[in-house]
Design a protein around this nucleic acid. Structure first.
Lengths: 342, 342
DNA sequence: GAAATTACATCAAACGGTTAACCTATCGGG
DNA sequence: CCCGATAGGTTAACCGTTTGATGTAATTTC
């Protein structure tokens, strides 16, 4: 709690000298003896610089705000965590702290409001979406962020006119699981998505449908189900799908977790994987690797996306990036849950 | 970027009135007409309060610092993430933001230093450890935190004299996997731990050993291996263990992920689980549930621990908690990877 | 009609750190 | 001995917000 003024008093110098010395230990504006006295005072009083005061004066906080317009608890979803991990590792390397805002508001609109209100003074922002965010929230958030005059990067969000800096996960646009299954000869493909209303799920739905239609496969809306990203729910839904539509040869799941749930369901129904039913995951998470059979999936390179976003933001902060879109393509990981149909 | 003064000027009032109104929309100290003009000015200039200035003035930031003395990337480990999730959900409900500090220092000592230096002004702290933290780092950190005069809670850290507020994960103290395996009649039990040097692994090692000795089972140090928490490494180590010590009947793993790796190894060696070899996990993560066979594990109630820590911290901030230790006991989840030995 | 209350508004200091501008010895060079 | 450079140090204003103290005019109360 001690301030620079107390240090100054104890060391018998002016606050200015203390500040100058502390910010540049080898400055020539402070004498050796004085330096020692300051060091001593700092120790004696347990002095630590107050970042808030410092930020106010310097007009630079070295803090990046993480905006996630969602009421869901953070850190509870592997996908989002990978994104965050990428962001954090980059920013951390450059000495930036990460600030996560509270989301105790009742409505999502309030959350947008609230997060922005709590967040001025950060040097930049990363705007995330999760499966729970609607297009509307995102747009509102982008508008608010633009008003702050600070740079921000959108991450894990479909392409949007309004945002200057974007990192795009390509597989949000192209439902490549469906594409792959079509190539493998499948024609009866169900799609298991995340939460209805979430913009990610909508996007995939749309792309899935156009891919099928392009391939001249009839599209049945009932073979698309919305879940909650949880294995349990996916288990139930997979059972339903597989009993209601016995001609299905493939299940394309929006996440590996859901795929894992679907696999359990298929097993419980006595189906062999991939002989009787092919199942695709998405995200190449640990589950996909450890599952038996190992899940064929799309590696979204989520962590790289996070890193890119951090990079881009840092570039924007020091002024070298004005407008840029980075596309992160996914890569197919072929494992043991998809068969070829002649 | 607009300040309260600009708003004041535009609305033709004093900054004081603006501040008063903005902090209490129904204050009687500002007239209705003035309120409207302020609202208008706020809109026109895209005004957002600067939290840093506000913090400085109020001496309260509504920000909690999260201190993790480790160079590892954050958000990349399910265990830590659950802990964080619990912490976040509670603090978020009370309107607190979370601040994560950079960890770009070269040595771990520097990290301690750096995180504390960057962190003054938070209303409180939560000190975490991961498997990578040594006792030494933790102690140093606690000392530094004590100097800040702000409350802090240690979480996921073995009991320590120095800290006033602690949330203890009971299974850090009692290696209950080993206990359970002994009860099930196993006598040849190997232990697969996390990183050597990490205090968690050390603690478990110690307890494992005493449990065996109490049960009059000879302890062979070579049946304890240190890994890196990764499935791949666990796979290799399990293979080694199972070939070097063919009489082993059980593997107790420090995490479900490691258990999953061990299961794959056993399967690849043609061993049946649990008939030929029993394998225990720890943490009751999603993997444990989805794995086939489903992994018998200890639910550590990690997220609850996080919530408790947040609770305790909030109590300390408003002065109602001075010194307290909360013990979070684990619960055994019996599934399909452990057999009974006659 | 004097006194008290209310409504509305402002002043100025404070929070803690930074820094441009300024000051004063001291020393070396010519 | 004078000039200029340099080392060492200070002053004071500023960053943006908050708030107790203070002021004044209008309204109410008796």
């Amino acid at each position: 709690m001690s301030s620079i003024r107390e240090i100054a008093k104890l060391a018998g110098v002016s606050p200015a000298s203390v500040s100058i010395y502390l910010n540049d230990k080898k400055t020539s504006r402070v004498g050796a003896a004085t330096k020692q006295r300051i060091d001593q005072a700092v120790k004696d009083l347990h002095y630590h610089k107050n970042i808030f005061a410092s930020t106010l004066s310097l007009q630079e906080s070295r803090i990046i705000g993480i905006i996630i317009p969602s009421k869901m608890p953070l850190f509870s979803n592997e996908y989002t965590n990978s994104l965050l991990s990428g962001v954090q590792s980059q920013l951390s390397n450059e000495g930036y702290s990460l600030l996560f805002f509270p989301s105790d508001a009742r409505t999502s609109d309030e959350i947008v409001e609230q997060q922005i209100q709590r967040s001025t003074g950060c040097d930049g922002y990363i705007l995330f979406s999760t499966g729970f965010c609607t297009q509307d929230h995102i747009e509102k958030n982008i508008m608010e962020l633009q008003k702050t005059d600070k740079p921000f990067v959108t991450l894990n969000i479909p392409e949007m006119e309004q945002a200057r800096l974007q990192v795009l996960i390509r597989d949000l646009e192209i439902c490549s699981g469906t594409k792959y299954l079509l190539e493998k000869g499948h024609r009866n493909i169900a799609l298991m998505l995340g939460r209805d209303g979430g913009m990610h799920a909508r996007k995939l739905y749309h792309d899935h449908r156009s891919l099928l239609e392009h391939a001249n496969v009839a599209f049945d809306p009932d073979t698309v189900v919305f879940g909650d990203y949880q294995a349990q729910r996916a288990y139930e839904q997979a059972k339903n799908l597989l009993t209601s539509f016995p001609h299905l040869t493939a299940l394309n799941c929006m996440s590996d977790i859901m795929a894992a749930g679907a696999i359990l369901a298929a097993k419980d129904m006595g189906l062999r994987i991939p002989e009787d039913i092919s199942i695709m995951g998405r995200n190449n998470s640990l589950h996909a690797r450890l599952s038996t059979p190992a899940i064929t999936t799309i590696d979204l390179h989520i962590e790289d996306a996070g890193k890119s976003a951090a990079h881009l933001l840092l570039a924007a902060i020091d002024g070298s990036a004005v407008s840029q879109k980075i596309l992160i393509p996914g890569t197919l990981i072929e494992r043991d849950t998809v068969s070829t149909i002649a």
